[in-house]
Design a binder for these strands. Structure first.
Length: 838
RNA sequence: GCGAAAGUGGCGGAACUGGCAGACGCAUUGGACUUAGGAUCCAACGCCUUCGGGCAUGGGGGUUCAAAUCCCCCCUUUCGCACCA
């Protein structure tokens, strides 16, 4: 008997160095096999991997390894989202160049990933900070410019004072910077915008294609973020001519309530305000109101407890259908940048308007009432927003209000006073960043030609590395003459290069496609490779990217398709999305400040990579958060030791079989053999379904644990005969094979010692045989009136009559039916017998 | 307020199509082997019990021979969005 101890450090080193030399997981698109592209969100090279990475990449690696064994040609790449602010902050703090810091971190993290044994196609590795990568992004920028999908605009922008840069709307979380939690300010700047709103409808509609493949809540979050509203723009005439302005438009989703308008509310920032109040005796009070609202903190202004406030401007609009005078108010709840910045006030049909009207004594006119009741404006306590019948609406009285929406919009349109339209909450994407460590935007500003795109043949516009990072965090590029001063690509005259860089989310919006041909120096993608690999079949990452990265990637996919780079039939980049939960410690997020960080490196040093991988998958289903448990990982370690010992203690009895290779004849040798072979096949069934179809790795592992437990129970009996040993050896091979996507090092090591030549990873996933899982006798539950009263062991093929007879003959059943009349017997073959008696 | 998800032993979690609730693991307890064990092995382990059984899947109703699972109402927690007109 072999007493050798399980030494994960030694065997993991052995197999990892072999994988590094042989790169067995590199792949090509020239294959007859069906393809499978599994991708985990690439990491920012912060310096060290944390448990969240380990969980994310372990899930992906199991999928990749399993799919390979199931006969797919699998693409499973890894790279680095390598531009970004932390590199600059580190440069300031430690005096090291951002590039040097980044590349050193990449080297370190690459080694950590290799230490975990992930089956990546390393030759495709990419880093977005390399010119070989971002040159293609600059090319896409030029294309976007040609098509008018990127433009410059001067507007108030989200400005993070601590990061010294603007932020996209998606990067502002509750008024704070997504990265550093500083309070975001508004700053007027001219910036580059990607016209993501041009794809608003498609981004919204195509969410339907993702149903079933993406988590419902991510789809909901995107739908919410895009925020499409259907309604009408209604043009109200103004009572006077205000400096040439004679009308004011509003957007409404309720054109059916147009006859209920009793006032109009305008955003304090609306450009017309100053004109409206000119000459009004209380103009100063209005100006003071505007100032006060403008100076309010953005967070406070958006809080849900903020009281609605307004002020009359002294001006009037005219109702487009009745000609009635409508007082114009300013309101602190009206958003300047949504719709037209002005809303019609219908107190009877909108709760905000209702409260506003009550507060300021404005009239309330009911225009939609429930079908079976009247509403009295004097006693109403809230707006009526449910469907109903139109009243007080001139020719539309009696009409269903849904029909009224269209009818009134049509009437307005015929008179040139409105039109059906839609509004999006989604804003265009500001991609300018006032930072150094990012991809240069390939345009120049020429004294005579204006904004001129860089010539395609001059790409890449390389980010200069010979700079000194400024201590105040501001970008050194504007003061780097060798970069900022240039010749105009059009006239050759003196010009200044754009010194803003691109948001790093631009790089991550298309990296998944670059992996299909990462080393191509002639074009961004090989069309054949793209057509073969895209879309990504399974994408895996944290839910924190539900909007940002996933929305941008979807947008880029549609744009690159329309530019002809991506296949024309490709609508979406990621067919299936798994959002894995967080790894917590003591119920909270791991953080250095809390001192509750579990370091993967330490865990690997203590238990080995296989144990760490196993525990991450066993602790909980993948989409759920789980709390790291020190005793939990002990359990996983114990299990692998148990497998190791089972193998070593039986090693001289083991035969070099593959999974599921014992025969029915072998199984006929003894009841133990038959039972173990049955368990083996059932485990293959369950593990395959749980790992491959449901991504429930925890239950797949539990099933293998049961098989191992069964092997311990049966091993002495099975060791007695050649056939028994065959059954046992086959089960051993099955354990190693089923575990191999999760614990590949242990699998390869023992597979080799079992006497096999080729790698276990190249084995086919075992096929289970239904015939092996049948049993002669089964246990059925016996119930009386739905309550369990006993069990019954009976021939598996017993028919209903036999089951019923056996159940009625059972002592426990008789005891519980004594004195009762049997009304009915429900027999579910193979499961139970329920006797209904009273 | 809107949207999504989740509530099952001391804990993580099983139960996939309604059919023996608690698989698998952790923790705990008892035992074995040991110079010793924080190794390993065996066993117990939802709650109550008069040992017949009774009660248990957030709460309350319902459908059914049978409900963690289906239907209705309610509560709690987490996440996202939120004066979006």
């Amino acid at each position: 008997m072999n007493q050798e101890r399980y030494n994960p450090q030694a065997i993991e080193e052995k197999w990892q160095s072999r994988w590094q030399t042989e790169q067995p997981f590199a792949c090509t698109h020239e294959s007859q096999k069906p393809k499978y592209y599994v991708l985990e969100m690439f990491p920012y090279p912060s310096g060290n991997i944390h448990m969240g990475h380990v969980r994310n990449y372990s899930i992906g690696d199991v999928v990749a390894r399993l799919k390979r064994m199931q006969g797919f040609n699998v693409l499973h790449p890894m790279g680095w989202d390598a531009f970004g602010l932390p590199a600059e902050n580190a440069a300031i703090k430690h005096g090291v160049h951002p590039a040097q810091w980044t590349y050193a971190n990449i080297a370190n993290m690459r080694a950590q990933l290799q230490r975990l044994g992930y089956s990546y196609d390393w030759p495709r590795e990419l880093a977005t900070c390399r010119p070989e990568y971002y040159r293609w992004e600059q090319l896409f920028f030029l294309r976007l410019l040609e098509k008018g999908l990127v433009y410059r605009k001067k507007a108030p922008q989200n400005w993070c004072p601590s990061c010294h840069t603007v932020l996209a709307n998606e990067q502002v979380v509750e008024g704070l910077c997504w990265r550093c939690d500083s309070r975001v300010e508004q700053k007027e700047l001219t910036q580059w915008f990607l016209k993501i709103t041009a794809y608003g409808d498609e981004l919204l509609d195509d969410l339907a294609r993702l149903e079933g493949g993406w988590p419902e809540r991510v789809i909901a979050m995107q739908r919410n973020w895009i925020g499409k509203s259907t309604g009408a723009e209604v043009v109200f005439g103004l009572e006077q001519d205000y400096d040439g302005v004679q009308s004011l438009a509003v957007f409404t989703t309720r054109p059916d309530t147009l006859y209920g308008v009793t006032f109009m509310t305008i955003a304090p920032e609306h450009p017309l305000v100053e004109k409206l109040i000119a000459g009004y005796e209380k103009a100063d009070a209005v100006r003071a109101f505007v100032e006060r609202i403008r100076n309010m903190d953005r967070l406070d202004r958006q809080s849900d407890t903020l009281e609605k406030e307004g002020i009359f401007t002294g001006a009037y609009a005219l109702h487009p259908l009745t000609g009635e005078r409508i007082p114009l108010w300013l309101g602190n709840f009206v958003l300047a940048d949504y719709g037209t910045g002005a809303v019609m006030g219908v107190p009877s049909g909108d709760q905000r308007d209702f409260e506003f009207a009550r507060k300021y004594g404005l009239p309330i006119r009911v225009v939609v009432r429930p079908a079976d009741a009247d509403l009295d404006p004097a006693t109403m306590e809230a707006a009526y927003t449910a469907p109903g019948v139109m009243v007080n609406s001139g020719p539309f009285d009696g009409m269903d209000n849904e029909a009224g929406k269209k009818a009134i919009t049509d009437l307005l349109a015929s008179q040139g006073k409105g039109r059906a339209t839609t509004q999006f909450r989604l804003r265009d994407w500001n991609i300018s960043r006032q930072r150094y460590w990012g991809a240069p935007i390939p345009v120049v500003y020429c004294e005579s030609c204006g904004v001129v795109p860089e010539k395609e043949e001059n790409l890449p516009v390389t980010l200069p590395l010979d700079i000194k990072v400024r201590d105040d965090g501001r970008s050194p590029l504007p003061e780097t003459p060798s970069f900022a001063q240039c010749a105009c690509p059009r006239c050759g005259g003196p010009a200044r290069r754009e010194t803003d860089t691109m948001d790093t989310f631009v790089e991550s919006s298309w990296y998944f496609a670059r992996y299909t041909d990462a080393r191509n120096e002639k074009e961004p993608f090989d069309p054949a490779a793209l057509a073969y690999w895209l879309p990504v079949d399974q994408y895996i990452g944290g839910v924190e990217h539900a909007i940002l990265h996933l929305l941008y990637s979807r947008f880029f996919t549609k744009v690159l398709r329309d530019f002809g780079y991506f296949p024309q039939h490709l609508a979406e980049p990621f067919t299936n999305l798994l959002t894995q939960g967080m790894v917590l410690k003591d119920g909270g997020k791991m953080s250095k400040s809390k001192g509750n960080v579990v370091d993967p490196g330490e865990m690997i040093a203590r238990y080995g990579a296989d144990t760490v991988r196993l525990f991450c998958l066993f602790a909980a289903p993948p989409e759920r958060d789980f709390d790291w448990s020190d005793s939990g990982i002990e359990g996983s370690s114990r299990f692998l030791n148990r497998v190791w010992r089972l193998f070593c203690e039986a090693e001289d009895q083991l035969l070099p079989l593959a999974a599921c290779q014992s025969t029915a004849e072998d199984a006929a040798d003894s009841p133990e053999a038959r039972e173990l072979r049955r368990k083996e096949h059932l485990t293959v069934k369950k593990a395959g379904e749980d790992m491959g179809d449901r991504f429930q790795f925890n239950t797949a592992i539990a099933a293998v644990m049961e098989l191992v437990n069964a092997m311990y129970l049966g091993r002495d009996a099975l060791a007695r005969s050649e056939k028994g040993r065959r059954v046992f050896s086959s089960a051993m091979a099955t354990v190693l094979t089923l575990l191999s996507p999760i614990t590949p090092h242990l699998g390869e090591e023992l597979w080799q010692r079992l006497g096999h030549n080729g790698p276990l990873a190249a084995q086919s996933w075992p096929q289970w045989d239904a015939a092996a899982t049948v049993q002669d006798s089964i246990t059925v539950a016996l119930q009386v009136n739905g309550k369990l009263r006993g069990t019954l062991s009976i021939a598996a093929d017993a028919d209903k009559a036999a089951l019923e007879a056996a159940a009625l003959a059972d002592a426990a059943v008789q005891r519980h039916t004594d004195g009762l009349t049997i009304r009915k017997v429900v027999v579910v073959p193979g499961k139970l017998v329920n006797i209904v008696a009273n």
